[in-house]
Computed example of a mutant assay.
Amino acid sequence: MTSIYRKIKWAVCLISVLPIVSCTAAGDETEKEHEQPSSGSVTLSVSDSQATAETKALYANLWEVQQKGFMFGHHDDLFYGRYWYNKSGNSDTKDVCGDYPAVFSCDFAEIMDDRYETAKEANDIRKRCILEARRRGEVITACCHLNNPLTGGDSWDNSSHMVVAEILTDGSATQLKFKSWLDRLVTFALSLKDDNGRFIPIIFRPFHEHTQTWSWWGKSCTTEAEFISLWRFTVDYLQHAGVHHFIYAVSPQMDSRKTMDDFLFRWPGDDYVDFIGMDCYHGLNPEVFSHNLKTLSDLSANKHKPCGVTETGVESFTDKNYWTKQILTPAAGRKVSMIVMWRNKFVNGNEADKHYYSVYGGHPSASDFVKFYNSELTLFSKDLNDMYSLPSHITVN
């Protein structure tokens, strides 16, 4: 962002933000204690030895951002909103604060699995949204609710404990199918280029929420060795196929107070994880959120890898002070690069459908969201520096 814009934003929010950022949980470190000077050299490492220059730059900037504040993100924000679908330029976030999220989150599953043929229109929309987000300089992250390649069920089909074992069995029908899904992802990824013809970096988080039981890759269906092997198999396959613009993010489910060991559950290895995420559906419990944010930021410092909240929110929330009370206050003094809300489903006239996790025009929290937007700690699209140019003081190996 320009220094002029930041000064304007700071002037608007000075009175309202100061009491908020001082309200950290008792015994926690203050924001000042967390600050690090931006000067001085920093060296980071990514898993892909052939990562593109833009990918390395984004990685460095993720680290840089979290020393100062966090980016606001929203899943599928550019794809649809509560009252609209597939309208270029639309955004529930923008409707409220006049700006787009800094992070656009999407799902790659329909690009890959057996829904590919019937989801061509949706996949074209996803690509359009990614290109638009990149054109504005925003950050793109993608999860993957893949169908079950063994049973034919959805990603929540945990009826078989043999899915991952079959994927890892050389020459098996399930492995061949899974490889074909990865091949589709390779084709899509290699088609993602910016206006200068350069590949668009993606923060990719496969097999998210692996700490829970409901997915076919979750802890009830796999052993530790199987999950780690699946993760490494996937990363190696994509890199060997020429995809060198992915930043690989792990994202355990952390809904209650968690320890650092909980975050490291079935850790795929430092050489296979670039970004430490957290899916945190903790309800209206800011103390839990604050605790887990501290654990996450401590692990980030320990591993020297950027981190962020890759999913959060409360379904059908109505708290008019939600943003300053439930998100901003717990995040004060924490060093995370992003906080990404889950989606606002397009209701298509069905007001009884309350599947939304973020603000939209007319929501009771809209005025509080503007305060949240004006905070010095939050970064939206207009606030971003060039996320795809390497800061001069950071080296990425």
Rank of each mutant, 00 (worst) to 15 (best):
V12H: 04
D195G: 12
I8P: 01
K56R: 15
K179I: 12
H161S: 12
H75C: 08
Y237P: 01
S358M: 08
C221K: 02
R257G: 00
Q66G: 12
G153K: 01
Y388P: 12
N321P: 00
L384Q: 07
F275E: 06
L150F: 06
E376F: 10
L230Y: 04
S159F: 00
E121D: 12
H240M: 07
I394L: 02
L192M: 09
Y59I: 06
D261C: 09
T24K: 07
S290M: 09
G69T: 09
I200P: 06
M162G: 01
V396R: 12
L182A: 09
D99L: 02
F70L: 14
Q66S: 13
R115I: 00
C23D: 12
Y85I: 14
E224Q: 10
N292Y: 03
P101H: 01
D113G: 02
F246N: 03
A60F: 09
W10Q: 15
F263G: 05
L296E: 11
R266V: 10
G171L: 07
K354S: 12
L58A: 07
S220I: 00
V250N: 03
T211W: 01
D124H: 04
A60Q: 10
T234W: 12
E166D: 14
K87C: 07
P149Y: 11
D298T: 09
D319L: 06
A352M: 06
V103W: 06
A122I: 14
E110D: 11
K193D: 05
S367K: 09
F79V: 13
D76K: 11
Y59M: 09
K294H: 11
R134P: 03
N350Q: 09
I130C: 03
T169S: 15
L190V: 00
L185W: 13
A332D: 13
Q36A: 12
Q239K: 11
T93L: 05
D76E: 15
H245Q: 09
L18Q: 15
M260D: 10
F246R: 02
A165M: 01
S300W: 12
Q253E: 06
G283M: 06
C307H: 05
H393V: 03
L192N: 04
R198D: 13
D77N: 13
L150M: 08
K56G: 10
D92G: 11
D274F: 02
T395D: 08
D195W: 04
V250G: 07
